[in-house]
Write a protein that binds this DNA or RNA. Structure first.
Lengths: 205, 205
DNA sequence: CAACAAACCCCGATAAATGAGGAAATTACT
DNA sequence: AGTAATTTCCTCATTTATCGGGGTTTGTTG
């Protein structure tokens, strides 16, 4: 199985390579520190499985997954991320990846995931399964904010004032204020600082 | 050399262990996912070298380093962090750690660091050296904010209003305003959002 | 000692955001 | 076609923060 590893931390890359080298059937044929680099490598090398981080410099893991799934739909993908926020996990899973393992998980989970994926199955680590099941009880949680609200939040995070946002989106300042109000209510944050922290925690920045 | 590894990501821990297992002279005798857990382990096991991450759940790496250096000054410490912000690096180095390697660095740097430390030397990875040298040209950079300003900034990040901060610190709201003003000026951030981003980037949150 | 930085305090004018209410127009979904 | 959700716009009162000045006291250091 030809594997391409993507992570911005060289030492993690080295470590995983070392772990996987114990398995005869796994062949790490490439490593990349960024999504862009990974895409370059994919042009020249045949790859069966892509194991990628979510947080990457430049293009993020989600975009990489989308691109790869479009360009080479038969390349399997396992996401190896530190993020366990419900909506983020769901967003990635929606892209049809074959596996999701947390960096908190043991390497055994990673190897299991690779096994499963090789056999054409899908593997979610224990912790991820728990998150998914949990979220069944709170089906709304992942759609906390509407697209528009997310858009506004991102602009807030870009240090735009309400006025700036209104101009940018061709809507009234009042509307922006309402969105803002709703965002605060939905995220249960009372202050701008809390909101920005929320945005960080939910990878909106 | 008896090594204790500390990192909140199991898979990185596994990877590094796998990498180090190739070296006969290195014996990973323990792993911890948090500073607290590491301190527990240190009570029962003899350790020569502690390799720790900076970002940890609960107590952070810096506090761990300080504690270990106080309790067991002869335990060598290598910090393995993703952070390359000048002032943060300096803050950690001030604690007298024996090595600093970035997660961006290759595992070769880590092994080199261990070699050096074993011989009683200090090892800073190439990238860290570059940062240190660079900072010589900007000696002020690391002391951007005064202690008081940092204190205020942390409270701002805790979602306290000026009024709250004033009450908490037994100073006038005017004073808080002035500090705030100065913080904005010094950090060259115009908005609260920018300030919070700064705080994140500088690990003040 | 003089100079400087740090921490402290104050003011007035202005800008920006919040809170609490209501309401209409669009989409999306069944 | 009808309902729900979303997006849009509004007012008024109030709070909070910003900008640009002013100043004192204390402690450190060349």
């Amino acid at each position: 199985m030809k594997v391409l590893l993507v992570d911005d931390h060289a030492i993690l890359l080295d470590g995983i390579k070392s772990l996987l080298s114990q398995e005869a059937s796994i062949d790490v044929i490439g490593e990349a520190n960024s999504a862009e680099q990974a895409l370059e490598l994919l042009k020249t090398k045949a790859v069966d499985l892509l194991i990628t981080d979510f947080n990457l410099p430049g293009m993020d893991g989600l975009s990489l997954v989308r691109l790869v799934k479009k360009i080479s739909p038969n390349i399997k993908i396992i996401v190896l991320s530190m993020h366990d926020e419900t909506h983020l996990v769901k967003e990635i899973l929606r892209e049809g990846v074959e596996g999701y393992v947390l960096k908190n998980d043991s390497h055994i989970e990673l190897k299991l995931a690779i096994e499963y994926v090789r056999e054409g199955k899908i593997y979610l680590s224990n912790n991820i399964n728990r998150i998914i099941i949990n979220s069944l009880n709170f089906p709304d949680e992942d759609r906390l904010l509407t697209d528009r609200e997310r858009e506004i939040l991102k602009l807030i995070a870009k240090e735009y004032s309400n006025k700036d946002i209104a101009e940018q989106l061709f809507i009234s300042e009042r509307t922006v204020e309402t969105h803002r109000k709703n965002i605060f209510r939905k995220t249960k944050t009372g202050t701008l600082v809390g909101l920005i922290k929320f945005a960080y925690a939910n990878n909106l920045i």
